[in-house]
Amino acid sequence: MPLHQRIVSIESEIIGWRRSLHARPELLYEVEETAAFVAEKLRAFGCDVVETGIGRTGVVGVIRGTGPGRSITLRSDMDALPIEEETGTPYASQKPGMMHACGHDGHMAMLLGAARHLCETRDFSGTVNVVFQPAEEGGAGARAMIEDGLFERFETDAVYGMHNLPGMPVGSFGVRPGPIMASTDEFTLTVDGRGGHAAIPQLSRDPILAGSALVQALQQVVARNVDPLDSLVLSVTQFHAGFVHNVIPDTAEVSGTVRSLSANGRALAETRIREICAGIAAAHGVAIEVEYDRNYPVTMNDAAEAARCGEIAAAIAGIAQVDFAAQPLMAGEDFSYMLEKRPGAFVFIGNGPSASLHNARYDFDDRALVYGASYWVELAKAATRA
């Protein structure tokens, strides 16, 4: 099963869509222009149903096959990032301070190419829902669409997602059963001490000293509480305190992120952070307020669905081009919310030797578009069979 010649024949059109979307990036839920572009294409292709405004600005197209079968969902994200683009391409962002630095323009173009093919051929059974989601970049757009009745309004037996990966060769794929991307939690620890003159520290309760001890102690969570074979990242990324040289301040603030590939690791990190704060507060005579926000869950692939996706990718790209035990990423992905509701799988597609994601010089590699669109087509045909 090589690349779809029908997809290859419209490659230049898919590239055109991708570059048009790249030039007009939008952030989080404010993707009205992008959503309108997508909805217009889906209607022109002949989707049986096109609905907009789901989860504020999400778009869903429904494509029905020629016989009975399963209903599945193929998902793409739509939003860009607040980054000033430095690629210098002719189709670079026309909006200052915004760019598609994560490849969501390519994700949309691949799914649009597959949607066009499926609408034209109807050579599958069951129903394919193509979902274009806002606010993946920190806004939990997947959760918003689910809360807006996504899976009740559009019957779904399984869900599938895909993300490009710089450093992986174009034409290759990666997948794995179980965790493939991490949960993404954030913490802010406010140390409330007693300020005073720096020359008479004995009259103060120094929040900077307590905060420094806190930073040191937090590094022991991974080193001494987590099984070395498990994956957990705890990073302190901010420390704010003080305002002049000769004053001990009243407060200090320490904040950072926790990434885990398991629910147990996630729970352990939160528990230990709270225990460490209580101990250091007592030792230094200060109070420490803990704000711990659980954000995106672990992106957890169903084993059977991951195997199915790997087989489809191998048929498209060749088995040597598929990593069936891809290394998981400690970055997060809100497709995880969809996988909590329905079985499915998330895969990586190679973007070649590009700049890294979320980099001002990143660009999606147009050569990957036909591979991604062909993968979606074949996955739709296989996964909808009753």
Results as ranks from 00 to 15, higher is better:
residue 4 H to N: 15
residue 12 S to E: 14
residue 12 S to V: 03
residue 13 E to Q: 13
residue 13 E to T: 12
residue 20 S to L: 10
residue 27 L to E: 09
residue 29 Y to W: 06
residue 30 E to I: 08
residue 34 T to H: 02
residue 35 A to S: 14
residue 37 F to T: 05
residue 44 A to C: 09
residue 48 D to T: 02
residue 50 V to H: 01
residue 54 I to F: 03
residue 55 G to D: 02
residue 55 G to I: 00
residue 56 R to M: 03
residue 59 V to K: 00
residue 59 V to M: 00
residue 66 T to Q: 15
residue 68 P to Q: 15
residue 69 G to R: 14
residue 71 S to C: 12
residue 71 S to A: 15
residue 74 L to F: 15
residue 76 S to R: 08
residue 77 D to Y: 01
residue 78 M to W: 02
residue 87 T to L: 05
residue 88 G to A: 06
residue 90 P to F: 13
residue 94 Q to E: 15
residue 101 A to M: 04
residue 106 G to T: 01
residue 106 G to L: 00
residue 111 L to D: 02
residue 111 L to Y: 02
residue 116 R to T: 04
residue 116 R to L: 07
residue 119 C to T: 04
residue 125 S to N: 13
residue 126 G to I: 07
residue 128 V to R: 04
residue 128 V to E: 08
residue 134 P to H: 01
residue 138 G to R: 01
residue 141 G to C: 01
residue 145 M to A: 03
residue 149 G to V: 03
residue 158 A to M: 13
residue 158 A to D: 12
residue 158 A to L: 12
residue 163 H to R: 01
residue 165 L to R: 12
residue 171 G to V: 08
residue 177 P to A: 06
residue 186 E to F: 13
residue 188 T to F: 11
residue 188 T to P: 07
residue 192 D to F: 07
residue 196 G to N: 11
residue 196 G to R: 11
residue 203 L to H: 15
residue 207 P to H: 06
residue 212 S to H: 10
residue 216 Q to I: 15
residue 216 Q to C: 15
residue 221 V to P: 08
residue 223 A to C: 10
residue 225 N to M: 09
residue 226 V to P: 04
residue 231 S to R: 11
residue 237 T to R: 07
residue 239 F to R: 05
residue 244 V to E: 10
residue 244 V to P: 04
residue 245 H to K: 11
residue 254 V to R: 08
residue 257 T to N: 07
residue 258 V to C: 09
residue 259 R to P: 11
residue 261 L to K: 03
residue 261 L to F: 06
residue 263 A to F: 11
residue 265 G to D: 01
residue 265 G to Y: 05
residue 266 R to P: 01
residue 266 R to V: 02
residue 273 I to P: 13
residue 279 G to A: 13
residue 282 A to R: 08
residue 293 D to V: 14
residue 295 N to W: 11
residue 299 T to F: 05
residue 304 A to I: 10
residue 307 A to W: 04
residue 307 A to M: 04
residue 313 A to W: 03
residue 315 A to Y: 06
residue 316 I to L: 08
residue 321 Q to R: 14
residue 326 A to I: 14
residue 333 E to C: 00
residue 334 D to A: 00
residue 340 E to W: 05
residue 342 R to D: 09
residue 350 G to H: 09
residue 352 G to N: 00
residue 352 G to H: 02
residue 354 S to L: 02
residue 356 S to P: 08
residue 357 L to T: 03
residue 363 D to W: 13
residue 366 D to K: 00
residue 368 A to M: 09
residue 369 L to I: 07
residue 373 A to K: 00
